[in-house]
Computed example of a mutant assay.
Amino acid sequence: MNAFLYSPAEIRPSPSASASCASPCHNCRHIRRIAAACSRSSEPPLDWVLARRRAIGDQIRAARLHANLTQQAVAERAGMDKAIYVRVERGHPPR
């Protein structure tokens, strides 16, 4: 079984995506959906939710490092602020 949700080939930007990703590729849209799904609630999340967020963040980080990209580069390609991307990679919901 693959340890990653997506293989490194699946996280590479499409050839049509520029460095600024003016026309977001599938991967950038997917990262935005993940960030949007991490909305805050008035109640603290359950333990299994926190563990799952951390696991997903670890997989995102491993894939980013495997692709030899910086957090800033991934955030720009995804069309989000670096601070938000860092929170997602750490398993925290974006603010």
Rank of each mutant, 00 (worst) to 15 (best):
M1S: 09
M1W: 10
N2A: 05
N2K: 07
A3S: 13
L5W: 05
L5V: 09
Y6S: 04
Y6R: 08
S7P: 04
S7W: 06
S7F: 08
P8M: 11
P8V: 08
A9N: 09
A9M: 13
E10I: 07
E10A: 12
R12C: 10
R12Y: 03
P13V: 06
S14Q: 06
S14T: 07
P15T: 04
S16K: 08
S16H: 08
A17R: 05
A17L: 03
A17P: 05
S18L: 08
S18K: 08
A19R: 14
A19D: 15
S20M: 11
C21N: 13
A22H: 14
A22E: 14
S23V: 13
S23T: 15
P24W: 05
C25F: 02
C25A: 10
H26S: 15
H26A: 15
N27Q: 13
H30R: 07
I31A: 02
I31G: 02
I31W: 03
I31R: 02
R32Q: 09
I34R: 00
I34S: 00
I34C: 02
A35E: 01
A36C: 10
A36F: 05
A37S: 12
C38W: 06
S39M: 11
S39G: 10
S41H: 13
S41C: 10
S42N: 13
L46Q: 15
D47A: 15
D47P: 13
D47C: 12
D47W: 09
L50F: 03
L50H: 04
L50K: 10
A51G: 07
R52A: 12
R52P: 04
R53W: 03
R53C: 02
R53N: 06
R53P: 01
R54L: 10
R54S: 08
R54W: 08
A55K: 11
Q59H: 10
Q59N: 11
I60P: 00
R61C: 07
A62S: 15
A62F: 11
A62R: 15
R64M: 08
R64T: 08
R64H: 11
L65K: 14
L65G: 12
L65R: 14
H66T: 14
N68E: 14
N68R: 15
N68G: 14
T70A: 07
T70W: 10
T70S: 15
Q72I: 14
Q72F: 11
A73G: 09
V74D: 01
V74Y: 00
A75W: 02
E76H: 09
R77C: 00
R77S: 03
R77M: 04
A78V: 01
A78Y: 01
G79C: 05
G79K: 02
G79N: 04
G79A: 03
M80Q: 06
D81A: 06
D81V: 08
K82L: 10
A83I: 06
A83K: 06
Y85G: 01
Y85R: 03
Y85V: 00
Y85N: 00
V86S: 04
R87W: 05
R87P: 03
R87G: 00
V88L: 12
V88M: 05
E89S: 07
E89Y: 07
R90A: 11
R90P: 02
G91S: 09
G91D: 08
G91Q: 02
G91R: 01
H92Y: 12
H92G: 03
H92I: 05
P93W: 01
P93H: 04
P93N: 07
P94K: 05
P94A: 12
R95N: 12
